[in-house]
Design a binder for these strands. Structure first.
Length: 278
DNA sequence: CCGTTCCTGGAT
DNA sequence: ATCCAGGAACGG
């Protein structure tokens, strides 16, 4: 579910709601979500903590408190963080309850249980998650085209789609947005990263930033179950040009969009428009 | 580089 | 019954 735009939307929806709120009770009932802590320690560390802010890096969220404690959450494929009233029935597959000093609580819901939660000091959570190994933030001002082009050339023989999906190369891009940016820049996903001409890479850089920005502006893509902290769906699914459109017309040339497998992931392309550089 | 694995549920 | 799904670590 959640790629950079969805995770950013969750952050933006949640931060104003929980800022300054105190956790008066913490409960986790699926311990495997915790990668560096027992359930008991997790609950114990959180109780009494006051939320101060949330920051996002790639697809990770870091929760800050009025103390040195940090909590990192990765939503995996189907994770949701929901701000809900305590007296409401939790959705099925709710694994974590952070009861706040109000009528609300922060709940973590995850059908497939691929999510991960880390708790501890900054150094602990950074090192125990993969946060410290993440590549550059694709939307940051400092991430110039020259730097992007360098990343492509750091993996010269790797397929461009695999590079875009590699969180160590660039942080935050997932299967949907990778297909969208490749479609819009008319690059075949099996192109070798190091073989893409500079002028073409420039298009990809521009579309990478454009697509992610549009994703955020549209509050993410809701295909199945993605929602933000308030349970609201995104709307970028209505603007997708490639992902999930197999059999439909390419908006540039009217040929049918096809679905293939690249880097082990389902991939949507127009074989007529997207050029393969090898 | 690929396949497998962690899970559940919806579609076919 | 089988395949597939927005992620990513791991082993060969």
């Amino acid at each position: 579910m959640p790629e950079l735009p969805e995770v950013e939307t969750v952050k933006r929806s949640l931060e104003p709601l929980i800022k300054g709120e105190q956790v008066i009770n913490a409960k986790i009932n699926y311990p495997n979500l915790l990668k560096n802590s027992s359930s008991e320690k997790f609950e114990e560390k959180l109780e009494g903590q006051i939320f101060s802010s949330i920051c996002r890096r790639g697809k990770y969220l870091m929760f800050n408190f009025d103390s040195s404690l940090k909590m990192i959450v990765h939503l995996g494929m189907s994770g949701q963080l929901r701000y809900e009233k305590k007296n409401t029935d939790p959705k099925k597959h709710t694994h974590v309850f952070l009861e706040l000093d109000s009528e609300y609580e922060l709940r973590y819901v995850d059908v497939r249980k691929f999510g991960r939660i880390y708790i501890g000091t900054y150094d602990e959570v950074i090192n125990e998650s993969s946060w410290h190994k993440l590549g550059p933030e694709p939307l940051s001002k400092e991430f110039s085209f020259e730097e992007f082009f360098q990343v492509l050339n750091d993996y010269p023989k790797k397929k461009i789609k695999a590079v875009l999906l590699d969180q160590h190369a660039i942080a935050g891009i997932g299967n949907i947005y990778a297909d969208e940016m490749l479609f819009r820049s008319k690059i075949h996903p099996r192109s070798l990263s190091g073989s893409i001409p500079k002028e073409i890479a420039k298009k990809l850089y521009k579309q990478m930033r454009e697509v992610l920005k549009l994703g955020i502006e549209n509050h993410g893509t809701t295909l199945n179950d993605y929602v933000d902290g308030l349970g609201d769906e995104g709307s970028f699914q209505f603007s997708l040009k490639a992902y999930g459109r197999e059999g439909q017309e390419c908006e540039y040339c009217s040929q049918e969009i096809s679905k293939i497998k690249v880097a082990g992931r389902s991939t949507h392309i127009c074989t007529n428009c997207q050029v393969k550089y090898c």
